[in-house]
Amino acid sequence: MIAQPFQYEAPATLQDAIGLLQKYGDEAKILAGGHSLIPMMKLRFATPGYLIDINNIPGLSSIQEENGFIRIGALVREAEVEHSALLTGHYPIFADSTRLIADPQVRNMGTIGGNLAHGDAANDHPAVMLALRARVVATGPKGSRTIAIDDFFQGFYTTALEPEEILTEIQIPIPPGHTGSAYYKLERKVGDYAIAGVAVVLTLDGNLVKSIGIGLTNVNPVPMRASRSEEFLLGKPLTDENLAQAGKLAAEDCSPSTDLRGSEEYKRDMVAVVLRRMVKLAAERAK
């Protein structure tokens, strides 16, 4: 399998990259880790005329703590996320989720920015970022802007990024005390896309839920927040009944489709099961 010919550009600065995007318009594609794009190109499902490799651009590859946020450069590799003490220390959900993404080699290339910018509800980090209430920084000809994660995923493989913008950074709030997080996806085999995945970040006040974020993987055309489940659990203790009800609400609200991974009904049911388990695990970690 071999891609159609294209022109390759490897700009050294963000400005140059944005300039190329402006010049080539929608004939151009950004190459970060390439592990979603290159397979599509080899299958000739994607046939860009221009490939803009942003890997030579400095300053997009660090993980830092600053002003109450962890700032993750868009080119940070999944393998670096997996092993970042800063990230996994604050949020074990990064260790949970990253080890379930594809496989070690893919994680060496795949970037966290690409995982989000692809806008694919089957990817794992969209749900994680929804649960974390992260912010995404997009840089374009007019400079940078910050997009709340809830405004970022707009449709099927569609994000808030303008054609001339590049996702450059992800910002995650430093958690207050008594915060726990957890992620799990059911998969047919290791590294597969999820049958259903649930990301949970919560902060406890004693036995009560003070704040909570829940994101769902691969059970909706668009990466999805389980809003009604979050609202239901707020201020409540995590009893079995409450967990069951929260799971039920998310199962109702998502919109999975029947495919080789199972029926719609199965996936809804799995959302409920995994949600319950992840809220429990996050709560244990919060204590």
Binding site: L31, I38, A79, P104
Partner: peptide, 24 residues
């Protein structure tokens, strides 16, 4: 990029060379 038969080290990191462009 499912089978790993093409795995090599690129700057010391294992990658699947069927899903990396030579120019990279």
């Amino acid at each position: 990029s499912s089978c790993g038969a093409c795995t090599i080290l690129l700057n010391g990191k294992s990658v699947k060379s069927c899903t990396v462009l030579a120019v990279q």
